Deep mutational scan, measured.
Amino acid sequence: IRLYEREDYRGQMIEFTEDCSCLQDRFRFNEIHSLNVLEGSWVLYELSNYRGRQYLLMPGDYRRYQDWGATNARVGSLRRV
């Protein structure tokens, strides 16, 4: 999964292949505005340590956080399923 700091895949990008319990420890931002799921399925959590609202993401492109059903861009952790 590739996470981007801004909409439309702009700004700083980070790629994950494994679970991350605290996004801010690995990426200086806690807001993700766009992403690409390259393979497999992922769950994004609004808070760190896999807490808060959850969003199940299938392979595909998500140009804005609204595309995955979120009401804001906050992402605290993520897990591959």
Score class of each variant (00 low, 15 high):
71 T>M: 04
49 N>K: 05
26 R>A: 08
6 R>T: 10
68 W>P: 06
64 R>G: 09
14 I>Y: 08
19 D>I: 02
17 T>Q: 05
15 E>C: 10
15 E>A: 06
58 M>A: 11
11 G>A: 11
39 E>G: 13
58 M>D: 11
22 C>M: 13
73 A>K: 15
37 V>T: 13
79 R>M: 13
39 E>P: 00
8 D>I: 04
29 F>R: 14
56 L>E: 08
47 L>H: 06
34 S>R: 01
40 G>V: 11
27 F>T: 05
51 R>Y: 05
31 E>T: 12
55 Y>H: 08
33 H>G: 13
67 D>H: 08
52 G>I: 00
12 Q>F: 03
19 D>N: 06
16 F>Y: 01
77 S>T: 00
4 Y>D: 13
39 E>C: 03
37 V>M: 02
59 P>A: 13
16 F>M: 04
78 L>Q: 00
23 L>E: 02
23 L>S: 15
57 L>A: 06
19 D>C: 06
68 W>G: 04
74 R>D: 10
28 R>M: 13
20 C>Y: 15
38 L>T: 07
30 N>C: 03
36 N>G: 05
30 N>H: 06
68 W>N: 04
26 R>V: 09
54 Q>A: 04
38 L>A: 06
31 E>N: 10
11 G>Q: 01
12 Q>L: 03
47 L>S: 13
59 P>S: 09
45 Y>A: 02
28 R>V: 15
54 Q>F: 04
21 S>L: 07
75 V>P: 09
72 N>G: 09
8 D>W: 04
61 D>A: 07
35 L>R: 00
31 E>K: 09
12 Q>K: 12
65 Y>L: 14
74 R>M: 02
53 R>A: 13
69 G>T: 10
57 L>F: 03
53 R>S: 12
60 G>T: 04
14 I>F: 10
63 R>H: 15
17 T>W: 06
8 D>K: 14
24 Q>V: 05
66 Q>E: 08
74 R>V: 11
80 R>S: 12
33 H>F: 08
10 R>Q: 06
76 G>H: 14
14 I>E: 11
19 D>V: 05
1 I>T: 02
46 E>T: 07
32 I>T: 07
1 I>L: 05
28 R>T: 09
52 G>E: 01
13 M>T: 04
51 R>W: 01
67 D>M: 12
12 Q>V: 14
5 E>Q: 09
40 G>H: 14
69 G>P: 03
32 I>Y: 15
55 Y>L: 14
29 F>L: 09
46 E>A: 06
42 W>M: 01
44 L>I: 12
27 F>E: 13
26 R>E: 12
50 Y>G: 02
67 D>F: 06
37 V>H: 05
10 R>M: 08
37 V>P: 15
66 Q>H: 14
33 H>Y: 10
65 Y>Q: 08
70 A>T: 14
10 R>W: 08
14 I>A: 01
54 Q>P: 07
36 N>H: 06
25 D>W: 05
19 D>S: 04
29 F>A: 10
